[in-house]
């Protein structure tokens, strides 16, 4: 079991207030882990720390040799300008950045891969549609097709199934399973506990502090969930400096 990600006493936060507090642990290569917890538990913050958008205020994240471009990250609210005149095909083709870079051309092989990715998310026929005309679920499918092409070792999905209907969520979940079968490491922040229990072997229950981390069945117990729910969401302006 080789490690793909290692957290060492990791504390992440905003203006000295911790949002993820003293997290220790290892994500093994090829693991499929759900990150669960109430709103404000630090799930997104943890992901930003992993992909390097947020610098730790204590401890460290060890990527175990991964380069930033080996990580694919789907933010909770994608920062996409939906009014920009670009079609589905071009949008998905961006996922090939790792092989085309700044100047590389897109040849027949690449075109085939783009069409395959679009087909894999069920959007065949939408290639020339401008992204401004897509529904929320279709846009999420586009972003998943782009993730497919990124061919990343570590895939980080921040609430990928929010505001998405059951059928789309199931289709996209199949892709997550495919990545898992391909031995890629996947972390996904989720709220649907039934989905987590059914499809995710590992879970991390977070409530600023890590409440439990391990096999999903051991983590999502009534007792642990209650503990997570009692977490205090607000920052305390009068908080003392953390001694740990």
């Amino acid at each position: 079991m080789t490690a793909q990600l290692q957290f060492r006493n990791l504390t992440l936060g905003y203006e000295r207030h911790p949002a993820v507090h003293h997290l220790d642990g290892v994500v093994t290569r090829g693991a499929l882990t759900a990150v669960v917890g109430p709103n404000g538990a630090g799930k997104s913050t943890l992901f930003k720390g992993i992909v390097g958008i947020l610098k730790p205020i204590g401890g460290s994240v060890d990527l175990c040799g991964l380069a930033p471009r080996d990580i694919a990250y789907l933010p909770q609210v994608a920062d996409v300008d939906r009014t920009f005149p670009i079609n589905v095909y071009d949008m998905v083709s961006m996922g090939l950045w790792k092989c085309t870079g700044l100047f590389g051309g897109i040849g027949r092989r690449e075109r085939d891969r783009i069409h395959e990715a679009i087909a894999a998310v069920g959007l065949t026929g939408f290639e020339n549609r401008s992204i401004g005309t897509l529904s929320g679920g279709q846009m999420q499918r586009v972003l998943f097709a782009r993730l497919l092409l990124q061919d990343a070792h570590l895939i980080v999905l921040d609430e990928p199934f929010n505001a998405i209907d059951a059928r789309t969520a199931n289709d996209l979940l199949d892709l997550v399973q495919r990545w898992h079968a391909e031995r890629r490491t996947v972390l996904a922040a989720l709220h649907d506990l039934e989905m987590v229990k059914a499809h995710f072997p590992d879970a991390l229950l977070l409530a600023r502090e890590p409440v439990a981390w391990g096999a999903t069945g051991d983590v999502l117990t009534a007792e642990n969930l209650l503990k997570a729910r009692h977490m205090c969401e607000a920052f305390d302006d009068e908080a003392h400096e953390c001694a740990a």
Binding site: P68, A72, D79, D81, F84, M94, W97, K98
Partner: peptide, 12 residues
Amino acid sequence: ECVDPAFLRSVS
């Protein structure tokens, strides 16, 4: 960078 600046930052 016009369409998806966060994605560009993540790959390049």
